[in-house]
């Protein structure tokens, strides 16, 4: 098993919190995550703030626009720019999503992959290409998805095939497992048991929105719900403790309030380590 580049509990870095974070990175944050696409080419006040924060806490980069599963050729200039960015901020882990982002241009949204063997091999080949250019392994996230474009295999088999073919790591999004299991009617624990432990680089946890029809939308706009905390606890029991980061993208509350959830991650990790 690879020694992990991150540990403990983390928080997604968001602009409304920058002022407070420049004062102090509160305990128990042991790493922070940014989407490089939000910061590439951003100098001035924001660029300076990021450089300061990155010098004080380990940074993970989680991209949005690599378009790993898309039909358009990979944007190698973007990959190279990311590489320079990772070096500049001494980024520990970098990755993106098991999705595509458009066709004949970008649509700036995470679009669901058709679950076919051919699509999995296409994705894996492009992940390898990115890993070759960057000279490092990347960690790809299991996304939430609402539509099935094609299904010749299960989501779990699709993900496992990509991880194996690409020889890359997984950013395990525990909330997405819950969202997808609910929306597509499968057992989230059975899914988690099928994930290869050694490939988990770190995990995400977040809140979501339940619509009137019962469909769950992965908004990252609310506190994490209890069933997802339970799922995280069970995932630690199955795979051992892994680094875990809280994401909040909508209705962003003050730092103190999101820190309550980061602290809960930290306590679940300590508890799991004791029970192990």
């Amino acid at each position: 098993m690879n020694p992990r580049a991150l540990h403990g509990a983390g928080l997604g870095l968001r602009r409304p919190h920058l002022g407070a974070l420049l004062e102090e990175i509160p305990n128990p944050i042991s790493f922070m995550e940014i989407a490089p696409e939000n910061w590439l080419g951003a100098g001035g006040r924001l660029g300076e703030a990021l450089t300061t924060v990155a010098s004080r806490v380990p940074i993970a980069c989680h991209g949005l626009l690599l378009n790993l599963g898309g039909p358009d050729p990979l944007d190698l200039q973007h990959v190279a720019e990311i590489g320079a960015f990772l070096d500049r901020h001494n980024v520990r882990v970098y990755g993106d999503h098991l999705t595509f982002c458009g066709e004949s241009g970008l649509l700036y949204e995470l679009l669901p992959m058709p679950f076919t063997e051919e699509a999995a091999r296409h994705l894996a080949a492009r992940i390898r290409q990115v890993q070759d250019v960057l000279g490092r392994r990347i960690a790809v996230e299991n996304p939430s998805y609402y539509c099935l474009l094609m299904q010749e295999m299960s989501e779990l088999d699709f993900i496992r095939l990509v991880l194996e073919e690409a020889d890359c790591d997984l950013l395990l999004d525990v909330n997405n497992v819950w969202v997808n299991a609910t929306n597509h009617g499968y057992d989230p624990r059975e899914f988690l048991r099928g994930i290869p432990s050694a490939r988990i680089a770190y995990a995400h946890i977040a809140g979501h929105l339940r619509t009137d029809s019962g469909l769950i939308i992965d908004t990252h706009g609310a506190p994490v719900v209890d069933p997802v905390w339970d799922l995280l606890r069970d995932a630690y029991a199955m795979h051992g403790v892994f680094p875990t980061l809280l994401e909040r993208d909508e209705n962003i509350p003050a730092l103190d309030e999101v820190m309550r959830e980061v602290t809960l991650i930290h306590s679940l990790q300590e508890q799991a380590q004791r029970d192990h």
């Binding site: 039909p71 595509f100 066709e103 679009l111 992959m113 699509a119 296409h122």
Partner: peptide, 15 residues
């Protein structure tokens, strides 16, 4: 490939 055609149809609809 069929999976690329499916992606294409999806993206074109969204546009």
């Amino acid at each position: 490939p069929a999976f690329i055609q499916a992606q294409r149809n999806f993206a074109r609809y969204l546009r």
